[in-house]
Design a protein around this nucleic acid. Structure first.
Lengths: 248, 248
DNA sequence: GGTAATACGCGCAAAAGCACGCACATACAC
DNA sequence: GTGTATGTGCGTGCTTTTGCGCGTATTACC
């Protein structure tokens, strides 16, 4: 097996499981733990995974639990997210201008995006931008101040840039989804970016697993009717029949 | 078998399998590993496949080792760069607005930057922005299109943002430094960003090891007199005595 | 809070992979 | 026939990768 393939295999294992231990990887790939550690170091430097004590986690998870070791490995919504992203990615059309919001779900979406002609992706996340560029996509980044926790760009520069753009379609994550309170998120500044970016987009999609239904976060960034929701898993009955909710 | 046919066969094998090893190809095509390596070199230069240690992969899969180029390069003039960066970092003053250009030398600079009150760093590189944020610096990113090779932002959005800013000081890298041709870089778009950012900066510093003196790259972004050069190593005699050249 | 277990990084040596130069062979032009 | 250009195989020395051992750091458990 090519070393390059091994690195890719590690990345996809980490992406899929959320986190893996060094012995697990060594066993699965037929090399010694030493080699795995070196690989993890390489991938960490390349910002493709996050190396932690005991193994590696996906980048998205590392932001929430930066210094924690791999003790709990609950990736319940994993399969769901895969299906959601596959469906959402299929909605991108050739020659379109597409907005990608920051967040862990949309990061996963990027891995599923097809290579279509004439598509430009715009994002407010430097992390997402790197992944897009890595996949060979034409990528534009909003300007602005970088929030260290989420690697998202906020502030007047980000909003001013958005004001000049008009997107064919866009994909957002949301911490809360509720019929009355709409789509909500914990951060005021990020909410602003989400709100303005949505305002400049023709076809708006919120991608989320079922656990967010009924949740409400501090700041609202859009009305429930403002976007089509692509989701999977056990959606509460109340939402299942709504015509802007697509369950895959 | 014609050499041309063999090259095509290699490409289609790589495309189909995603990756292959040198011995596999040699076996399948009935030639020696030497020939295969030469073929891979040819195809890599033509950007039809990506040559990696042990074989080749399709271009899409190749990104793991690809973006190590910056970190690899940064090991070259190691000691010199450390000294240069330490000296340059000491030039940042409290309460200032500082521009950091993209490039491997300026990336190293970031590790040396002090934690001063009231300092905001602005950069055109998403990679640099991440490192700044990781170190707890207040970080602003220019908007614009992301160039995959260098992770730098270019284009009208980047330039428009720069037009609104005025920096107290700034640090740039340069591929070529020559008395007559000035500071030069290989890329037209990046040169534009460098040029405009310099125009909005009061104290301009180019940080570079001695190897760049006398070199000329395709596009000029500033006159030789426009910046103070901080360097180390064996600077050509001609440049040693110039009053905007500081050797550490 | 102390101790055992695990994980880590570093240096070393073997093995695999690599570039480079040289020799030969085939092909083509004059 | 001679000369030149291109392609291929092979040997040599160098680089990269890998596994292993050991001292140190981190985590888990009582």
């Amino acid at each position: 097996m090519l070393a390059e393939d091994r690195l890719n295999a590690i990345v996809s294992m980490v992406q899929q499981a959320g986190s893996v231990t060094v012995p697990e990887l060594a066993e699965a790939l037929g090399v010694t733990p030493s080699t795995i550690r070196r690989d993890l170091q390489t991938l960490d430097r390349a910002h493709r995974i996050a190396k932690v004590h005991g193994g590696a986690t996906s980048l998205e998870r590392a932001h929430v639990t930066r210094d924690l070791t791999i003790s709990e490995r609950s990736d319940l919504h994993n399969d769901d997210k895969e299906r959601i992203c596959a469906r959402a990615a299929a909605l991108v059309e050739p020659d379109s201008f597409v907005y990608i919001d920051s967040g862990s779900t949309t990061l996963r979406l990027i891995e599923h995006l097809p290579h279509l002609d004439g598509v430009t992706y715009v994002t407010d996340s430097v992390l997402h931008a790197q992944h897009l560029a890595l996949r060979g996509m034409r990528t534009v980044v909003l300007g602005g101040e970088l929030k260290p926790e989420t690697e998202a760009l906020v502030g007047p520069d980000a909003l001013a840039t958005l004001d000049r753009y008009n997107f064919n379609c866009g994909f957002w994550g949301s911490n809360g989804i509720a019929a009355e309170q709409g789509f909500t998120t914990p951060d005021i500044e990020e909410a602003q970016v989400k709100r303005i970016s949505m305002r400049h987009t023709a076809k708006r999609f919120v991608i989320s697993d079922a656990s967010k239904f009924g949740m409400v976060a501090p700041v609202k960034f859009a009305d429930f009717r403002d976007a089509t929701i692509i989701t999977a898993g056990e959606v509460p009955a109340k939402y299942q029949s709504m015509d802007n909710v697509t369950t895959v």
